[in-house]
Design a protein around this nucleic acid. Sequence first.
DNA 1: GGTGGCTGTGAGAGCGCTCTCAACCCGTCT
DNA 2: AGACGGGTTGAGAGCGCTCTCACAGCCACC
Lengths: 337, 337
Amino acid sequence: MTRNAERPTLEQVASLAGTSRATASRVVNGSPRVSPEARAAVERAIDALGYAPNRAARSLVTRRSDSIGLIVTESEERVFGEPFFATLVRGVSDALAGTETHLVLVLNRSDQEHSRVRRFLSAHVDGVLLISAHADEPLLAQLAADPLPAVLAGRPLQPTSLPYVDVDNAHGAYVAVRHLVERGRSRIATIAGPQDMAPGIDRLEGYRRAVADVVGTASSLVAFGDFSTASGERGTEELLERHPDIDAIFAASDLMAVGALQALQRRGRRVPEDIAVVGFDDSVVAATTHPQLTTVHQPVGDLGRLMVQRLCAALDGSSPVPRATVLPTHLVVRDSS
Amino acid sequence: MTRNAERPTLEQVASLAGTSRATASRVVNGSPRVSPEARAAVERAIDALGYAPNRAARSLVTRRSDSIGLIVTESEERVFGEPFFATLVRGVSDALAGTETHLVLVLNRSDQEHSRVRRFLSAHVDGVLLISAHADEPLLAQLAADPLPAVLAGRPLQPTSLPYVDVDNAHGAYVAVRHLVERGRSRIATIAGPQDMAPGIDRLEGYRRAVADVVGTASSLVAFGDFSTASGERGTEELLERHPDIDAIFAASDLMAVGALQALQRRGRRVPEDIAVVGFDDSVVAATTHPQLTTVHQPVGDLGRLMVQRLCAALDGSSPVPRATVLPTHLVVRDSS
DNA sequence: GGTGGCTGTGAGAGCGCTCTCAACCCGTCT
DNA sequence: AGACGGGTTGAGAGCGCTCTCACAGCCACC
């Protein structure tokens, strides 16, 4: 384990450059108070030795870790469509690319690991990005009480002072339903998501607002699911039973929309001729169904990027951090509507 | 940024416990050379103060970072089915759960970031997990030359001394084709993946071996794709044109299988009645197609877990690290075959 | 009663870095 | 000529921890 025993230190750089360690440090950290000659000499020495600063030593004195934590709670991967996690991580990584900041990943599974996450938080990162679907996420309270800067993915359900970045779920749903109306649909039902999760609530609200905007459209064509394919099937069957005359379904997730397509096909209803279907997420599956799914796209990569930006702002205290940032969603029209 | 100014140090723990810093350190690190009384006193002090060791200070002296890097190259997320990344990370995280080791994520996008990755490697982690599809990945050579322990996901194409963990692509393909044979299919074609990637090569090899096992089966019913849906469509059309009488297609990825389903449907070929289709990956989309896709499941979570185990073995030098570890794949039979 | 080993303990060095502080050089002003 | 000020520099402390080393205490043995 004692690798890199030969890694050069700042001391060696300084002595090769013929300066003191302090001056070498100034060069490494880009201080302006260094003469051009000294700077050049140190830079030459750095190249010659292949010097890279020892992060631990630096952290010890600066009291910064130069890394941020990405905490993902268990349920998340199941709830969001699969591209979500990878795309978000990509966005976060993008935003971090120019900096020296590391991204430390913590998947928060069970309660037994909770203490681990806590210690982790307080000791090892400068800030935290939290991805959590659970409304009752105890970490939220912990983070709010901690001086550690944190940014949430998605609107939290309970009141908290922590800033968050979200996609405009309500407006996305609203636009999806308006689209169905414009296509001439008048009996538009929805399969809503869980009502203990912000996306579930907000997408249903968008649906309701759009339906209320249209005079003469019934407003109670709602079934509830859990974002899964199976629940989409169940929801569709329930809707067809209660309201056989519906001519459109807005599903609050692509997977539920897939379930709807399957249920409709089983019942012999043609999509989009008899019933139009719109999903939400613009996940991989949306392009693999038959017919291909009209769905609401959410800018997940931007979500990650913006979370980092907000966190960095909080870290260096340069600019005030807005408590809420909401990114626009947009409709992707394919063949199912 | 000067948060946690009040974080307790080992010194404070020791003084509260009435011992020296050295003894407190022994307790923290679980040394057996401490009397029960001293241990209890220190533990009480730790609880009272809410002490957590300063990682930077520890790293500085131990010369370990207690973290490992997960390096993912750009193309990867596109190539593998979407659940791949999340599931692998989950497996890695699982394996790390009991330890104090952190997981640092690096997405290696462009060449300009290459130097960043290099510095990162040499300075900040004890070991590396590399996920890379590219055969010509320059990091491979760098890692092989570096004393930094590394474990690869997937068989590397060029010869290297680095250990890797892979899933049994060839056998998975073999089993898939044998399954088609058992279902009575005799004109079995394949849409192979890119031949500059190990999974593409190995899955084709498995197909060829299975076909060779069956006397009287033609062996040149091969089209090539890039694992994407679109390439699956193209490959299917190409196959149908060249060999209109094929009665089964083994696609080297689920997405290509989806493309095949779409192309077949357009041509009015029924699946599985006229043509059976089998995919590879057991991704989310496999369960959302119509008919649902028979596919080869690969234990991606186990892949991650095992990579960590191999890396840890390399780190503590306890046991020799096998150069290759291959995990079994298995067929998931659904409706398309 | 002395020797040897074995256990538990504390003093102290030092990991590589940043940052404060005082010193220094040199040109400019009184 | 002396005082002053801005720019540049180096000495040195110290971040919180681990780990070596020496030593004190204790038992068993000759």
